[in-house]
Simulated assay, not measured.
Amino acid sequence: MTTENLKFPLITQHNAEYPREVQAAKEVSRLLTKVEFPSQDVWVDLRFDYALVEHSSSNVDVMLIRGQPHGIVRINLQALYLMQDFESMLMEVIPHELAHVLHGVKAKVDGFTIEKVHDDIWQHLVFKLQPDAEPLPKVKGEFDDRAVRLSKGGILIQCECGEDESFAVIANTAGNSAKLRTEDHKCGTCKFPYHRVDGQTLLPQRIKDDLAFLERIQCIKFQHPHLQR
């Protein structure tokens, strides 16, 4: 496997490999072209991160040289969610995150401090990128993070809701373990205390499938270092 022949305008480096990752990278590049992103002096590092719990994140490391922005921006997308809800990732998540990047670059160029990350400027940038997107602080989408949390060592718990909805995953901390022992951690829907589930035999098929997918990805990335970025 190689990503050497996969090049996208305005993206300097990336680890896109699978079809939906490639489509997402194309969309990132297309949207940045719409807003005339200064890609000659600001490099874009796009990473598909299967360990990310959130749908996306970004970091802007830019300085002004002779009044122009120079540096690098890193954009992280949870690629598992591309498999779960591809449309929401393209139509909502990518404009949402790119607006944060543009917001950060604009703040550096115009010399202001961002007080609220989802302010009016950010909302305007979302609309500029994707007029049909909803500029909300929390993106709506059919994203299931339970397999990701389990793969990171989370605790599988269950309430009395029944079916798929009865399973949740929480961080493996001393505080959470204590709440489970004292039955202080209760479901907001059925109001019954959560209890710890041992093993994976009771897992819903959706979580099993996601875990198997993540395991395959980890094996592939282990064998192909250029995808581990």
Score class of each variant (00 low, 15 high):
118 H>W: 11
118 H>S: 04
118 H>T: 03
118 H>N: 05
118 H>V: 08
120 D>A: 14
120 D>C: 04
121 I>C: 12
121 I>S: 08
121 I>F: 11
122 W>F: 09
122 W>S: 02
123 Q>I: 11
124 H>D: 15
124 H>Q: 14
124 H>L: 11
127 F>L: 15
127 F>C: 05
128 K>Q: 14
129 L>Y: 05
130 Q>V: 00
130 Q>Y: 08
130 Q>P: 13
131 P>Y: 06
131 P>T: 03
132 D>R: 10
136 L>K: 10
136 L>Y: 01
136 L>V: 06
136 L>F: 04
136 L>T: 07
136 L>Q: 02
137 P>V: 09
138 K>M: 04
138 K>H: 06
138 K>C: 00
138 K>P: 02
138 K>I: 05
139 V>F: 12
139 V>G: 08
139 V>M: 07
140 K>N: 14
140 K>I: 07
141 G>F: 08
142 E>R: 14
142 E>D: 15
142 E>C: 08
142 E>V: 06
143 F>A: 04
144 D>A: 02
145 D>R: 02
147 A>C: 03
148 V>W: 01
148 V>S: 05
149 R>N: 05
150 L>C: 06
150 L>G: 02
150 L>E: 00
150 L>A: 01
151 S>A: 10
151 S>V: 00
152 K>M: 14
152 K>G: 05
153 G>E: 07
154 G>R: 02
157 I>C: 05
157 I>D: 01
157 I>G: 04
158 Q>L: 10
158 Q>F: 03
158 Q>K: 15
160 E>S: 12
160 E>Y: 02
161 C>V: 07
161 C>G: 08
162 G>F: 03
162 G>E: 03
162 G>V: 04
163 E>Q: 09
163 E>Y: 07
163 E>P: 10
164 D>W: 07
164 D>A: 13
165 E>N: 13
165 E>W: 09
166 S>V: 00
166 S>D: 01
167 F>I: 00
168 A>R: 13
168 A>M: 13
168 A>L: 11
169 V>R: 07
169 V>Y: 10
169 V>F: 11
169 V>T: 04
170 I>H: 08
170 I>R: 01
170 I>E: 09
170 I>G: 07
171 A>P: 11
172 N>F: 07
172 N>I: 00
173 T>R: 15
174 A>R: 09
174 A>D: 14
176 N>Q: 10
176 N>Y: 12
177 S>R: 13
177 S>Q: 15
177 S>F: 04
178 A>P: 04
180 L>R: 02
180 L>E: 09
180 L>K: 02
180 L>P: 12
181 R>V: 10
181 R>K: 14
182 T>Q: 13
182 T>V: 14
183 E>D: 13
183 E>G: 08
184 D>F: 04
184 D>I: 00
184 D>W: 07
186 K>V: 15
